[in-house]
Design a protein around this nucleic acid. Sequence first.
DNA 1: CGAAGGTGAGAACGGCCGTTCTCGCCCTGC
DNA 2: GCAGGGCGAGAACGGCCGTTCTCACCTTCG
Lengths: 192, 192
Amino acid sequence: MDTDLARERILDAAEDLFYARGIQAVGMDAVRDAAGVTLRRMYQLFPSKGDLVEAYLARRDARWLDSLATHVDTVGPTAQARVLAVFDWLEDWFARPDFHGCAFINSFGELAGTSPQVTAAARHHKDAFHAYLHQLTTAAGATAATGAQIALLAEGAMTTAAISGTPAPARHAKAAALNLLTLDARPVASPA
Amino acid sequence: MDTDLARERILDAAEDLFYARGIQAVGMDAVRDAAGVTLRRMYQLFPSKGDLVEAYLARRDARWLDSLATHVDTVGPTAQARVLAVFDWLEDWFARPDFHGCAFINSFGELAGTSPQVTAAARHHKDAFHAYLHQLTTAAGATAATGAQIALLAEGAMTTAAISGTPAPARHAKAAALNLLTLDARPVASPA
DNA sequence: CGAAGGTGAGAACGGCCGTTCTCGCCCTGC
DNA sequence: GCAGGGCGAGAACGGCCGTTCTCACCTTCG
């Protein structure tokens, strides 16, 4: 089998399993079975489980942000609509049957106490996501503070959707984001 | 040693270790060493590690909410101030050197895929927290939707503070919560 | 005093997991 | 045709972990 193909099948299997069951709960044997490659091959491509975990997180980070940006681009150039589109995309994600929360929040919760690499991967992913949101909100005329607040709404929606098991938090977050954006563009009336 | 005292020492040790390093990363031997009791005694009081984990989460849930409510009560009866006090309390928590995120989000991320008990504990804790926030926000004249939005801000602040390692998200969340509350009480001016 | 049951300390057991090794096979290059 | 090196499949190894057992001791009650 081609090396690149093996690599991809291993990462596909690792992502499915790590995301669904947690990293520590999945043994290398389970990844091997799901990937259909030999253990020897896996250790040639990923010398340790930690390397596989890092590759899993790195690929998921890139794909997740790409998918989000692609969706945002489908709504056109209107800046406020682009911000709100983030929450529609989140709602679609939350409603998927295999949704299990944010992989980075999950692996941070599982391994931050023991793995600096996982901690760094989570931080990197969230930094990138927040930077992207900052860019979208700034384009919509919001302040940096509003951008940070909208990021908190998105993060809160992820954990609440995961734990509650419903996609509704995405809509609540979207409504709140709209309010915050509107406030920025159009301050409240002064007291009567 | 008294049974109640042993129970408490075991739970104290378990909480310190599980919260700091994650549940799966901490063996029963480590809890025994930290608690200063014998393994036999631990298994008399908690017949399995799963029982210990459940007891850890149950006690933390109760204490966490009690601590929050106690703080909120110190600010007096003004409804809006009581809502905002939640975020001050969160900021204090985030700034503590041993802060490591929300124990329930962490254990959910670590064990939701394999333990229905942990999933239920996380859901129960978040339901209780959101119900408390709903009560506070309703008292401040906000709609249920605004209450849910403020809950998302609090959740987002927890994960963002944990991963970024700074308490700043509490202040951003507080500012956003104030905006949302104000908006509820005093709608934006209609378009010119 | 003596039997009995509980306790402390730690060893032991069974199983799992990350990692490496063995062995037989195939495929390549002369 | 044949030596040799890489590959697939799975066994093996070392270590860890949850749980239970052993055994000597101590206490307690008749």
